[in-house]
Amino acid sequence: MPVLLMVLAAAYGAAAGLLVPRPAYRLAVEPGEAWRAHCPGGHPVAGVWRGWVGPGRCRSCGSYGPRAVPIALVTAVTCALLAAVTGLRPELVAWLAAAPVAVLLAVVDWRVRRLPDVLTLPLAGGAVLLLGGAALDTGAAGSWGGALLGGLALAGFYYVLYLINPEGMGLGDVKLAIGLGVTLGWYGWAILITGAFAGLLLGALYGCGLLLRRAGRPERRNDGLKQAMPYGPFMIIGAFLGVLLGAAAAP
C-alpha cells in the first residue's frame, strides 16, 4: 500500500503541477496591476473557470509562463514524499491539497516578489478546514488546536519582523505564515519552530549568496538586497521539511 499510495500521490502531483503555469503567468504581475488576461501575443487566456484552469499554452502562438514539466516534476516529488511519510493518516488529504497551491505561491513569488492574497488566504483557510476534518478521525497524528495556535504564532512572529523591517518583509509573507503555521502546528511546537527556523535559515543562506555575488560586481553593490529576495519559497520549503519531519516522527 505505501508504494501504491506514493505512485497515486505522484500522479496527482504531476497532474496538478501541469496546471500551475497558467495561473502563475496570470498572477505574476506587479502590485496594482490587473491579473493578466492575454498571452504575450495578445490572445485571450481562455479556459475553464474564466481562464484559470488549463495548460500554460496558447493555441495560437505557443507557451507562456513558467515551464510546465519542471513544475510538474517538483509537485509530483513533493506529493510522493508527503504520502510516503504520512501514510494513510487523514491529514494527508490536507497536505496533498496544499502542495500545488504552495508550489504556485513559490513560483509567483520567485518571479515577481509577490504573494497574492487570492492564494495565501485560501491556503490558510483550507488548511484549517481540512485539518479540522482530519482531527475528527481517530487515526490523525496531530492536534487541530495546536494547528490553530501554530498559525497565530507564526503569523505573529512574521508580523513582528514586518514591523521591524517593512522594506524587507511584506504583509504577503505574514499572510503566508498563517497557513504554514497551521500545517506545522499540527505536529506540535517543536515542529513549528523547526520548520520556521529552516525557512529562515534557507532564506539567510540565499541572502548571503546574493551579497557574495554582488561583492564581486561593484556596479551592483548598492542595490537593495530586499528588492531581489523572495522569502516565500524559503518559508514554504522550510514548512515542507517540517511537515516531513513531523509526519515521520508521529506515532
Rank of each mutant, 00 (worst) to 15 (best):
V108L: 11
L176G: 02
D223N: 07
G170C: 00
Y64D: 02
A9E: 10
R57M: 08
R59D: 12
G145Y: 10
G51P: 02
P2A: 15
R114A: 06
C39T: 13
E167S: 14
A102V: 08
A177W: 01
V45W: 03
A177E: 02
K175L: 00
Y162T: 07
V128K: 05
V182Q: 01
V85E: 09
G224S: 15
A15N: 07
G133P: 02
V85S: 00
V107N: 01
A84D: 08
L82R: 01
A124M: 08
Y158I: 00
L192N: 01
R111A: 15
L212N: 06
L136P: 07
A68Q: 08
G172T: 01
G42Y: 04
P230E: 01
G203F: 03
T138Y: 12
R114W: 09
A14G: 13
A16K: 03
D109Y: 08
P230G: 15
I236D: 00
A16L: 10
V85M: 05
E91R: 01
G242S: 01
V160E: 09
A97T: 12
H38L: 11
P230S: 15
Y25S: 11
G146V: 08
F234Q: 01
G199K: 00
A198S: 10
R26H: 09
G32I: 08
L180G: 02
P23K: 10
C208I: 14
M235S: 00
V182R: 00
E91H: 04
A147D: 01
H43I: 06
P23D: 10
A127E: 04
D117Y: 11
L88Y: 14
L115K: 04
D117T: 12
R22F: 02
L105R: 05
L81C: 13
R26M: 14
A106Y: 04
F197N: 10
D109S: 09
